[in-house]
């Protein structure tokens, strides 16, 4: 199931009226965050964002030792209460995990949230990213504006599309260095982008053609020599160069589909980009 379709469980650590302060809210909060939950701490003062959808689990040390009866604020929100007096962080986490199972809410941590984020202040809608990506991460909206549509299709730790963007408009917030990590774009970065850090150019031609050629060469060798090890070594040698040029994880390159499938997907992506560009030009 795409992650966009999954419901989530939000936990509230309640320390407001009618409840005592928690003994160690930091430990409880840390344990829950490490399990991937969103946690709201409410007190008598201050306010937090309201909940409009999904399941809400309210935990507290309630004054009469009993949790209040659950009442949904709206039809779209399911609310449950639990008294956690005497529970440590591990006990609270176990309780929340059990509740998550009951509600069928998403289990976190099975996917590393790695995907491109577009800086629309910089993006010129040139569609190079759409044309480049083989994995269907990008698409266009109703107004032919580029957007990230399938975040979970992105290949973990691969920032390759950000390197084909001529405007440095593609960020990966978990990347190590700027401006890809979201740091401000410097003049020096722009100069580099103007030179178009194009991994295909670095490798002396279209990247997919290069991969195809290398793979065919490796396959040919394999068929002649019947030596799977040599074919693999050849492919690895080629991919090491590509990985270094674009900071693309070797495992991403090694898991690329067959040359035929690469060609098919590349054509499909280019066609989508061309259609979007044509739609932009249509008044």
């Amino acid at each position: 199931m795409p992650i966009k379709s999954e419901s989530t469980l939000r936990v509230v650590l309640y320390e407001g009226d009618g409840a005592a302060p928690l003994d160690d809210s930091f430990a409880a909060m840390t344990a829950l965050l490490e399990r991937g939950y969103a946690v709201t701490r409410t007190t008598s003062g201050g306010s937090v964002a309201p909940q409009t959808r999904g399941s809400l689990l309210v935990l507290g040390k309630f004054s009469d030792g009993r949790a209040p009866l659950a009442e949904s604020a709206t039809a779209d929100v399911s609310v449950r209460f639990h008294d956690i007096a005497g529970q440590d962080a591990a006990g609270i986490t176990a309780l929340v995990e059990k509740e998550r199972d009951t509600t069928g809410a998403a289990k976190h941590g099975e996917w590393k949230p790695w995907f491109p984020v577009i800086d629309y202040d910089r993006c010129t809608n040139c569609m190079q990213c759409l044309s480049f990506c083989l994995f269907g991460v990008y698409g266009v909206d109703d107004e032919s504006r580029i957007q990230v549509q399938n975040n979970d299709n992105c290949k973990t730790n691969c920032p390759a599309c950000s390197r084909v963007c001529p405007e440095a408009a593609i960020m990966f917030p978990k990347y190590k260095a700027g401006p890809i990590n979201g740091d401000l774009v410097s003049s020096a970065d722009l100069q580099r982008e103007k030179m178009k850090i194009d991994i295909s150019a670095l490798l002396g031609g279209d990247v997919y053609s290069m991969l195809r050629a290398r793979s065919e060469k490796a396959q040919s060798r394999f068929s002649k020599e019947r030596d799977e090890g040599k074919a693999l070594a050849e492919r690895q040698k080629c991919l090491v160069k590509l990985a270094a040029a674009g900071d693309i994880p070797a495992e991403v390159l090694m898991s690329l589909p067959s040359p035929e499938e690469i060609a098919r997907r590349a054509e499909e992506a280019k066609a989508k980009a061309a259609a979007a560009l044509a739609a932009q030009r249509t008044p």
Binding site: G36, A38, R41, T43
Partner: peptide
């Protein structure tokens, strides 16, 4: 003692 929202990621 302030109210706040925390998200894992």
């Amino acid at each position: 003692g302030v109210a706040f929202d925390a998200v894992a990621d």
